Simulated assay, not measured.
Amino acid sequence: MYKRQANQIVLSALEKQAAVVLLGPRQVGKTTLALWVAEQQPSVYLDLERSSDRQIMIEPDLYLDELAGKLVILDEVQQLPGLFKSLRGQIDTRRRQGFRTGQFLLLGSASNVLLHQSAESLAGRVRYIEMPPLLLDEVGTDRLNDLWLRGGFPDSFQADNSKSSMDWRKDFLRTYLERDIPALGPRIPATTLRRFWTMLAHAQGGLLNAAALAEGLGVSGQTVGRYLDLLVDLMLVRRLQPWHENVGKRLVKSPKVFVRDSGLVHALLGLETLEDLLGHPVVGGSWEGFCLEALIAAAPAGTEPFFYRTSAGAEVDLVLRLPSGRTWAIEVKRTTTPKVSRGFHLAVADIKADQGVLVYAGEHDIPVAQGLRAMPLASILETLRGL
Rank of each mutant, 00 (worst) to 15 (best):
M1T: 10
R4L: 06
L14W: 04
E15M: 10
E15S: 13
Q17W: 13
V20F: 09
V20S: 08
V21D: 00
K30W: 03
A34S: 10
A34Y: 00
E39P: 13
D53P: 02
D53W: 01
M57L: 15
I58T: 12
E59A: 13
E59Q: 12
V77D: 00
P81G: 08
P81M: 07
G82P: 11
F84Q: 06
K85N: 10
R96H: 11
F99K: 06
F99V: 04
G102Q: 05
Q103D: 03
F104E: 06
F104C: 08
L107T: 06
L107K: 05
S109F: 09
V113G: 03
V113E: 11
L115C: 09
H116Q: 14
A119H: 07
S121D: 08
L122A: 01
G124D: 12
V126Y: 02
Y128T: 09
I129M: 09
E130L: 14
M131G: 09
P133G: 15
D137I: 03
N145G: 14
D155Q: 15
Q158I: 12
D160P: 08
N161V: 13
D167P: 05
W168L: 10
W168I: 10
R169S: 14
F172D: 02
L173R: 13
T175M: 14
Y176W: 14
P182I: 04
I188C: 05
A190C: 05
T191C: 01
T191M: 06
T192N: 05
R195W: 10
A203V: 06
G205V: 00
G205W: 00
A210T: 09
L213K: 01
E215M: 08
G221C: 08
L228M: 08
L230E: 05
L230G: 04
L231K: 01
D233Q: 13
L236C: 10
V237C: 04
V247S: 13
G248S: 11
D261M: 11
H266I: 08
H266C: 14
L268A: 09
G270V: 12
E272N: 13
V282H: 03
G284P: 03
C291P: 02
A294Q: 15
A297K: 07
P300M: 08
P300K: 08
P305C: 12
R309V: 01
R309I: 00
V319C: 01
L320K: 02
L320Q: 07
P323D: 06
G325E: 08
R326G: 15
L346G: 00
D350W: 05
Y360G: 00
H364L: 14
V368F: 04
Q370D: 15
L372Y: 03
A374R: 01
G386P: 00
G386T: 12
